[in-house]
Computed example of a mutant assay.
Amino acid sequence: MSDPSTGAAEHGPAVRARRHPHLWESSVQEIEVYGTAWCPQVTEVLARLDHAGVAYRYHDIDTNKKAAKTVYRLQRGTRRVPTLVLADGTVLVEPTDDHLRDRLATAAGTEQKEETT
């Protein structure tokens, strides 16, 4: 696993795609995560995504100017991290553990329904 503090996002995104079948039958589509290496909340969100087996692409906004501009655009001029963009376009800014867990469960449920239809 890549450490966000290594600047892996600057040279290429760090993508993690582990799955835990007891959480979901299928993985949630990849999530875009914008953060900084020094923010403990970013580290917590990445750990939660890793634990849940959710695929994501990490962008360090301190080392990637394009990612920083994306965060400014998504937040209409502010720069708060972590910022997550879910596959359905939903933007989460500094989500609580409960909010993140609920959104991931909702996304996984939606994907499962689409696969069965």
Results as ranks from 00 to 15, higher is better:
Ser2Lys: 11
Ser2Met: 13
Ser5Trp: 02
Ser5Ile: 01
Thr6Ile: 11
Thr6Asp: 15
Gly7Tyr: 06
Ala8Tyr: 15
Ala9Ser: 14
Ala9Leu: 06
Ala9Glu: 00
His11Met: 10
His11Glu: 10
Gly12Leu: 15
Gly12Phe: 14
Gly12His: 15
Pro13Met: 11
Ala14His: 04
Val15Gly: 14
Val15Ile: 14
Arg16Trp: 12
Arg16Lys: 09
Ala17Glu: 07
Arg18Glu: 12
His20Leu: 11
His20Ser: 14
Pro21Asp: 07
Pro21Glu: 12
Pro21Lys: 13
Pro21Ile: 12
His22Lys: 11
Trp24Ser: 05
Trp24Phe: 13
Trp24Val: 05
Glu25Gly: 13
Glu25Asn: 12
Ser27Ile: 04
Ser27Asn: 04
Ile31Leu: 15
Tyr34Ala: 02
Gly35Gln: 02
Gly35His: 00
Gly35Lys: 02
Thr36Val: 10
Ala37Glu: 09
Ala37Leu: 10
Pro40Tyr: 15
Val42Lys: 00
Thr43Ile: 08
Glu44Cys: 05
Leu46Gln: 05
Ala47Gln: 15
Ala47Thr: 14
Arg48Leu: 08
Asp50Thr: 08
Asp50Ile: 08
Ala52Lys: 05
Gly53Lys: 00
Gly53Asp: 00
Gly53Ser: 07
Val54Pro: 01
Tyr58Leu: 14
Tyr58Asn: 06
Asp60Ala: 01
Asp60Gly: 05
Asp60Trp: 02
Ile61Arg: 01
Asp62His: 03
Ala67His: 02
Ala67Val: 10
Ala68Val: 07
Ala68Trp: 04
Lys69Gln: 10
Tyr72Asp: 13
Arg73Phe: 08
Arg73Lys: 11
Leu74Ile: 10
Arg76Phe: 07
Thr78Cys: 07
Arg79Asn: 12
Arg80Gly: 05
Arg80Tyr: 07
Val81Leu: 06
Pro82Val: 03
Thr83Ala: 06
Leu84Thr: 05
Leu86Gly: 03
Leu86Ser: 04
Ala87Phe: 01
Asp88Cys: 11
Gly89Tyr: 01
Thr90Val: 12
Val91Pro: 01
Val93Glu: 01
Thr96Arg: 13
Asp98Gly: 10
Asp98Ala: 13
Asp98Arg: 13
Leu100Ala: 02
Leu100Asn: 02
Asp102Gln: 10
Arg103Asp: 00
Arg103Tyr: 06
Leu104Asp: 01
Leu104Ile: 03
Thr106Pro: 03
Thr106Ala: 10
Ala108Glu: 05
Ala108Ile: 04
Gly109Glu: 09
Gly109Ile: 13
Glu111Met: 06
Glu111Pro: 01
Lys113Ile: 01
Lys113Tyr: 07
Glu114Asn: 12
Glu114Tyr: 09
Glu115Thr: 08
Glu115Ala: 13
Thr116Ser: 15
Thr116Cys: 09
Thr117Phe: 12
